[in-house]
């Protein structure tokens, strides 16, 4: 379970966000500058709220007046916009970067499965600039999940893809969520995409939740 309660003064408005989620997919929809990425950053520990409480299962990421838990200890998977793959490392090194030496053996099988499911096994020795946008997205997903995160954050994960690849990747995201069963928070501009992916859709404007839609029943779309 993830509990998010954030108050943060941004350049043009004060952000006030409060939501709780289970192992579901929440999609954050809103215009540019409405604070969507800031929400992901505060959950990941890359930015901190002025006040609030962020809890993941039993773990306190942030509570007012106490030192925030560093990003590296939060066990968050974060898929950045444009993927932020390390350009000087092969796909294989990108994916294994977050796995400690002591955990390598036990993660081997999980990462093998991940490569299989995402169909990126043949890309392992390539560099990010040598692969397509859709492949980058899959590699970034594999990298984010290789650390066995307790929450996965996706910042406009499909925005750089063409229509056809986009649809395929939406299916992949839903399939991965079914396998992983952890909270996914997805930021998007695309309302159709939000409807397709989200168990819940949260609409944001100027740092406030203006509306929330919930799917009546959670049905897989594939």
């Amino acid at each position: 379970m993830l509990h998010v309660e954030i108050t943060k003064q941004l350049a043009h408005f004060e952000m006030n966000i409060h939501f709780e989620m289970r192992n579901e997919i929440i999609v954050l929809v809103g215009p540019s500058g409405s604070g969507k990425t800031t929400i992901l950053d505060t959950i990941a520990g890359l930015a901190h709220p002025d006040h609030g409480l962020i809890l993941s299962n039993e773990c306190t990421f942030f509570t007012t007046g106490e030192k925030p838990m560093p990003a590296r200890e939060r066990k968050i998977g974060y898929l950045f916009q444009d993927y932020a793959l390390f350009p000087h490392m092969t796909v294989e090194k990108n994916i294994w970067f977050g796995v400690r030496n002591s955990e390598r053996n036990e993660r081997h099988e999980m990462i093998r499965q991940l490569l299989e499911v995402l169909g990126i096994k043949h890309l392992l020795q390539k560099y990010p600039h040598q692969i397509s946008g859709g492949e980058k997205q899959r590699v970034a997903l594999a990298r984010a999940l290789s650390t066995q995160p307790s929450v996965l954050l996706l910042d406009e994960p499909l925005s750089a893809l063409d229509k056809e690849t986009r649809k395929q990747c939406q299916d992949e995201l839903l399939r991965l969520h079914d396998m992983w069963k952890i909270p996914f928070i997805i930021v998007t501009h695309d309302h159709a995409e939000a409807e397709r992916l989200g168990d819940r859709i949260i609409y944001l404007e100027q740092g406030q939740i203006t509306d929330e839609k919930r799917k009546r029943s959670i049905v897989s779309t594939y």
Binding site: L46, P70, E73
Partner: peptide, 27 residues
Amino acid sequence: LDERLSNAARTMGASEWRVFWFIVFPL
């Protein structure tokens, strides 16, 4: 340097030392 690359490494559990040696320095 793109700060997101360092941030990506941090979210993957990398210490500041590891971020510097494996991401910042080579790039």
